[in-house]
Amino acid sequence: MRLDLLAALNAARAERRAAAVVTEMPGGAQRVVTEAAGDPLAGPLAKAFASGRSCMIDAGERSAFINVHLPATRLVILGAVHVGQTLAPIAAALDYDVTVVDPRTAFATAERFSGVSLVADWPDRALPEMRLDRYTAFAALTHDPKIDDPGLIEALRAGCFYVGALGSRKTHAARRERLLAAGLAEAEIDRIKAPIGLAIGAASPAEIAISIMAEITAELRRPVAA
C-alpha cells in the first residue's frame, strides 16, 4: 500500500469516518474510498459500508478485495442508574465503547461503574465534546426531563443510529410535547425508541438492560428497509 493511501485511511479512522481500501487482484492496484456512490464497485461497497464486512468480489477474471473500516460502535448511557450498571458491561462485552454521563455526582461514581468511562456533567455540555455520530447508540435512562431532554436533542441532531428513552407511554407523550416545543420535528422525535427496549416483558433492571441491548443490536444489524 502506498504511504499516502495508508495515511489517508488512518486519518479517516482517527476522525471516525468510514473508509474502505479496494485492492484489485491480480495486480494490487489500490484506492481508498469513503463514499460508495461514484465508485465502479458502488454496489458491493455500499453493502460493505452497511454491514461492516470486508469481502473478496469476483468479477470474471478480475477480482477485488474490499477491506472496510467502520468506526467502533459507541454507547452513551445518560444516567448512572441501576439499569445502566448492567447495560454498561453488556455493551462492553459486545465491543461497544461505553461512556456513562450523569451530572449527579452521587450516581456517577467509580464504585458503581468500575472500568467504565464516566462523565459527571450535564449532557448539553458533555455530549457535544464527545462528537456523537451515526456509529453511536444513545440511551437516556435518568427519568428526569431536565437531564434526558437536552441529551435526546443532542443525540437526534447528531444522527445517532439508536436513540432510546426510558419511561412509560404516558411519560413519552409528555416528552413528545416538550421536544416539539423545543423545536424538534415530529419525524425526529419518531426516531426515539420509547418505551425503551424490545418488548420481552422485562421486569428487573438487568432484564431491561438486555431488552435495550437487543434493540440496539437490531437497529445496528437489521438491513434498512428500502
Binding site: M1, L3, L6, A7, L9, N10, R13, T23, M56, F65, N67
Partner: peptide
C-alpha cells in the same frame, strides 16, 4: 497494525502489510 505500519514506514524501516482476504 495500520497506525504502526504508517509509523514504521515513516521511520524508513521497510514494511510489509499482510491482510486476511478470504
Amino acid at each position: 497494525p495500520l497506525a504502526i505500519a504508517e509509523a514504521w514506514a515513516r521511520e524508513g524501516r521497510g514494511v510489509a502489510l499482510a491482510t486476511v482476504v478470504e
